Amino acid sequence: MKKSEPRPGGKPATKPDINAGAAREAVDDARLLLASRLRLRHLNCFVAIAQERTLARAAARLHLSQPAVSKTLVELEAWAGARLVERGRNGAALTAQGEHFLRYALDATRAVEASAAALARHDAHAAPALRLGALPTVATALLPSALLRFKAQRPHVGVKIQTDSNSELLRALKGGDLDLMVGRMAEPAMMQGVSFEYLYTESLLVVVRAGHPLALESAEPSLDAVLAFPLVIAGERTAPRHHTEAFFETHGLAVPEGAIETQSASVARLIVARSDAVWIVPQRVAQSDIDTGLLVRIGVPAPRGVEPIGILRRSTVALSEATGALAQQLRECAQEA
């Protein structure tokens, strides 16, 4: 057998890696085969499951039977060679592989929706409404100023605001139901595919109405004196509530029984303004009422610098020009406050 001739540099010619080439061809063939089988209905079904978090609600949304949705999901998982959704009594939760696939499924379905809208739209310059999520405390503190400035620049762009818990807003953001969110960071597993841009750090205050007995005292009231009055605090499983409970624990106390618990800043504000109730509240929520004299801050030490707030967005999706403009107004208002 004739040996291969050495190359001009004196080194023998290397033989091509036939096995590596065959492996690449096999992968390419599998990808092409999967692309030929994958249909928009598969993507729509998966996105609906991710957003609705139960197969039954996803089926109702798609006007399909639950077995049909389950069959479509089984097909996807068979092609992926991995479980994409964990089914249980509490609903359907995406696995890590499911979270990864959701990013691409959302991009594809949104592109189709945008193409359909472009074909059907009579006014080519009409802009879809922006979908903004915000924590209740942020909605009353930061959003009004930012939205007024944004509307002054873009009066024809609508904004749909959703207020909810941080975990629910984050699910909506990752599921493609929100374009932007103002809230807190979550545990690393929940932040997959989401970026966080710091805006400010929240603190808590203890406030009462103007003319309240505690506000008329010249000396700083004790915590016992404060607890002699009805207390208004944030609801359970919220960050302000967690820090309030920690505040009491540092003084060897528990949250008093009979406290009024609410996530509504407007309800809390009216209760405090019309009674002798004491409100433990994030500073930015109460600041405008303090500035106008409706509420008065009392000098009881409360947790400071406890709550980083920021802009959250899907890291794989570029912001539209209008959404970017709204984000800029949020940044500027946060800095000025």
Rank of each mutant, 00 (worst) to 15 (best):
A114W: 06
L94P: 06
E99F: 08
A127C: 09
R103T: 13
A108M: 09
G98V: 02
R103N: 13
A114D: 12
E113I: 09
H100M: 15
A127W: 01
S115V: 02
R89H: 12
L130T: 00
A124C: 06
H100T: 10
G98F: 00
N90Q: 13
L119C: 05
R121V: 06
T95P: 13
R110F: 00
A93T: 08
Y104K: 12
V112P: 10
A124E: 04
A116R: 07
A124Y: 00
A92G: 10
G88I: 05
H122G: 15
A117E: 14
H100W: 08
L94F: 01
D107Y: 02
L130A: 00
G91I: 01
E113D: 15
A111I: 09
A118V: 04
E113P: 14
G91W: 01
A96R: 15
A114H: 10
A117R: 10
R110V: 00
R103V: 12
H125E: 10
H122T: 11
S115E: 09
L130P: 01
A126H: 04
L94Q: 03
L106W: 01
A129S: 02
L94I: 01
T109C: 07
A129V: 00
A108G: 11
G98D: 07
A127N: 08
A96T: 14
E99P: 14
L130H: 00
L130C: 00
G98R: 06
A127I: 03
H125C: 08
L94Y: 01
L94H: 01
E113Y: 07
L119Q: 08
L106F: 01
A92L: 07
A92V: 03
T109I: 05
A93W: 04
L119A: 09
A116P: 06
A120H: 05
G91V: 01
S115Y: 02
A105C: 12
N90D: 14
Y104G: 09
V112Y: 03
L106P: 11
G88C: 13
L94S: 07
Q97M: 11
L119I: 03
G91T: 01
A129L: 00
A126I: 00
A92I: 03
L102W: 02
A124N: 04
T95Y: 03
P128C: 02
D107R: 07
R121D: 11
A105K: 07
L106Q: 05
V112K: 08
A118E: 15
A93C: 11
A127S: 10
S115F: 02
A120L: 13
T109M: 06
S115A: 12
F101H: 11
Q97T: 09
A129H: 00
Q97A: 15
L119R: 10
L119P: 12
A116G: 06
E99L: 15
